[in-house]
């Protein structure tokens, strides 16, 4: 049986009030299943970032309901949301994901430290991912000493090590050249296949869209198509 990780029901999101009100999301219904590898696409301003922010509880909805791993996000306080994200959701942003004063190793360990994962297990998980991502030997570098592609890979490692139910990535390849971006996506795809990790990411790049298993198209805040490939 397919398990549903995220259920979004009749989501509306408006910014501002009165005349300047912007309807960023209109009546969005969305189910994300475990093992999905879904791309959210659409023109600039169509609401991709807004949707992703809402799915992880960074932003709140104007109306509608969201459940992630069976928990309703609207009922949680700021601190509960933070802890919920720490346990259940991995996040990757477009760039500057890493804490500049921490080394690669420390960045990856950060969430696990908040989760109180024992040291031995932390070490093991970090090294598994560093090897998978081809970043061995770089654990004591600072983010500024890495290329953009390497930084994004570390960000994915950080999102993965805490064993979340889902990883949400807002344009993870937008700051990379197409080759590096393609490699990053391959990596995500591999984790999706091998570890059954669920990914939802937004993108502008047609090459990237092609590799998604599911394509969700947004226009003016509405889902206009949702197809499996």
């Amino acid at each position: 049986m397919e398990e549903t990780v995220i259920v979004a029901h009749k989501i509306f999101k408006a910014f501002g009030e009165g005349e300047t009100e912007i309807q960023a999301l209109r009546n969005v219904d969305l189910d994300i299943k475990r093992g999905d590898f879904a791309a959210i696409v659409g023109p600039s301003g169509s609401g991709k970032t807004t949707l992703l922010n809402i799915l992880c509880g960074l932003d709140n909805v104007s109306s509608g309901e969201i459940k992630v791993s069976g928990r309703s996000l609207q009922e949680m306080s700021g601190s509960e949301l933070a802890q919920f994200r720490r346990e259940h959701i991995g996040l990757v942003f477009q760039a500057y994901n890493l804490i500049p004063v921490l080394t690669v190793l420390e960045n990856i360990e950060y969430v696990m430290l908040l989760q109180h994962v024992p040291a031995a297990e932390r070490k093991e998980r970090v090294h598994t991912f560093l090897a998978e991502l081809g970043l061995e030997g770089k654990e004591n570098r600072f983010p500024a000493e890495l290329s953009g592609g390497q930084q994004q890979r570390v960000a994915i490692a950080r999102a993965m090590v805490s064993k979340p139910d889902i990883i949400l990535a807002d344009e993870p390849t937008a700051n990379l050249d197409s080759e590096t971006g393609g490699q990053l996506l391959e990596m995500m795809r591999k984790f999706n296949e091998e570890l059954k990790m669920t990914f939802v990411f937004s993108t502008h790049d047609p090459q990237i869209m092609e590799r998604a298993k599911r394509l969700i198209t947004l226009t003016d805040g509405r889902i206009v198509s949702d197809e499996l490939k």
């Binding site: 992880c56 960074l58 700021g78 601190s79 933070a82 802890q83 994200r85 720490r86 346990e87 996040l91 942003f93 500057y96 994901n97 890493l98 804490i99 500049p100 950060y110 969430v111 908040l114 989760q115 950080r158 999102a159 805490s162």
Partner: peptide, 13 residues
């Protein structure tokens, strides 16, 4: 921005 990331990835307020 950095603190935004720190808070998004599960650091409580």
């Amino acid at each position: 921005f950095e603190f935004g990331v720190i808070k998004s990835i599960g650091t409580t307020p």
